[in-house]
Design a binder for these strands. Structure first.
Lengths: 197, 197
DNA sequence: GTCTATAATCCGATAGAC
DNA sequence: GTCTATCGGATTATAGAC
C-alpha cells in the first residue's frame, strides 16, 4: 500500500488509497489507536489531502463503514435472490460470509466485529443494519413457507446464524486450525437442525 | 455512585468504588472515551488516589477485566458442577448468562462484548478465556457420553451457544421487546437441536 | 493514603503557500 | 487539490504538600 515507488496520487485515486489504508489501520489497531498522522504516513499522502476529502476523522470512519456495509448488502442480496428455499439461501449467506472472512478479513473485522457506536454515536446497532435485516427476513419467509418451525423470528435468526458468526470470530482471532470454509457443511447443518420443522 | 452525601472514601473501599465507577464508564462509553478525569469526577476521588491504587489506566482496565472474568468463571463452574448431563449443564449456563445480562448488563457488556485487545495488547482472545473454555468442555463431554453428535468441538460449542450470545447482544442493544429470560426455552431448544444425536 | 497543581506528550484540526 | 507548519486542547502521568 505505502509503496514508496508509487507516484503521487490525486483526486479519486488518493481518496481510495486513504480509505483502504484507513480500513487496514482501523481493523488492525482500532479506531482510537489510529491517528490521522498514522493514516497520512501509511497512505503516503498529506494531512491536508485527507482533510480535503473528509470533514474529520469521524466522517472518514463513517464513509468507510457505509461503503463496506453497502458492499455486504449487495453481496448478500445477490446470494439470496439467485437461490430459492430458506435452507439454500442460508447456505449461500454463510458460504459468502465464510469466504469473505478469509478473503477480506479486515472488512469483516471492521463491519461485523467493531464497536462502531464508540466512535459513530449516531449509528444504530449493527443488528438493525441491512445485512442482518436480510438474514432475518430469510428466516421469516422460511417460517411462512413452512420450512422453518414457528418460533420467534429473532430466535430463529440467531439460532441459524449465531454459530456461523462465532466461527468467523474464531477465524479472525486465529483460533481455528483448519480453514474456515472447511467447516461450512457442519455449521450449516447445525444451524438448520436448530430451526427446521 | 457519585453521591455527594457520601463521606470520603479510603483504602479498599475507595479502590472498590473506583473499580465500580470504571466499569460503568468503560461499559457505557468505552475505554477510549473515558478519561482518568472522568473516573475521578464520577467516583468522587482524586487523581492521586487512583494512581496510588493502579499503576496506570491500562492496569486499571486489566484489574477490572481479571476480576469480572474470575467472577464469571466461578459462577459458570458452579452451575456446571451442580448439574449432570450435557443438556442440563447447557441450560444452566445459558440461564445464568441470560440472568446476568439482565441483572449486570455492564459486566456482560464489558467482559463478553468489548474489544479488549485494543487496550490490553497482551490479553488473549476472549474465546480462550476460562468461561468459554468451560462451555467447550461441556460439549466435549457431551460428545464422549453420546448425548451430542460427533462433530468438531468448536462447531458444537458455537452451535450450542452462538445463538444465545447473539440474543444477549440484542438485549444489550435494546433490540428485544420482551425480557431476555423469556426466550430461554426457545434458545436452549434451538441450540440443543443443533447438536443432539 | 489522599490531595492539588502541573508537566510532558499527543492528537485533531486549521491556515495559508503552492 | 495537495502540501507543510503549527495551534489549541485534551490526556496521561508525576511531583510534592498534607
Amino acid at each position: 500500500m505505502s509503496d514508496s515507488s508509487k507516484k503521487r496520487l490525486r483526486g479519486d485515486a488518493l481518496r481510495k488509497t486513504v480509505l483502504e489504508t484507513t480500513l487496514r489501520l482501523f481493523s488492525d489497531n482500532g479506531y482510537f489507536n489510529t491517528s490521522i498522522h498514522d493514516i497520512r504516513r501509511e497512505a503516503g499522502v498529506s494531512i491536508g489531502a485527507i482533510y480535503h476529502h473528509f470533514r474529520n476523522k469521524e466522517a472518514l470512519a463513517q464513509c468507510l463503514y457505509d461503503d463496506l456495509l453497502q458492499r455486504m448488502s449487495v453481496a448478500i442480496s445477490e446470494v439470496v435472490e439467485e437461490r430459492t428455499g430458506c435452507r439454500e439461501q442460508c447456505r449461500g449467506i454463510i458460504a459468502l460470509l465464510f469466504d469473505l472472512t478469509v478473503e477480506e478479513p479486515r472488512m469483516m473485522q471492521f463491519v461485523l466485529l467493531a464497536k462502531h457506536r464508540e466512535y459513530l454515536p449516531d449509528e444504530p446497532p449493527i443488528c438493525s443494519s441491512q445485512p442482518f435485516s436480510m438474514m432475518r427476513q430469510v428466516l421469516e419467509q422460511g417460517i411462512e413457507s413452512g420450512e422453518v418451525r414457528t418460533i420467534e423470528p429473532w430466535v430463529a435468526a440467531t439460532a441459524m446464524f449465531g454459530g456461523a458468526l462465532r466461527m468467523m470470530s474464531l477465524e479472525l482471532d486465529g483460533t481455528l486450525d483448519r480453514p474456515l470454509p472447511e467447516y461450512l457443511e457442519q455449521v450449516l447443518d447445525c444451524g438448520w437442525r436448530a430451526v427446521k420443522v
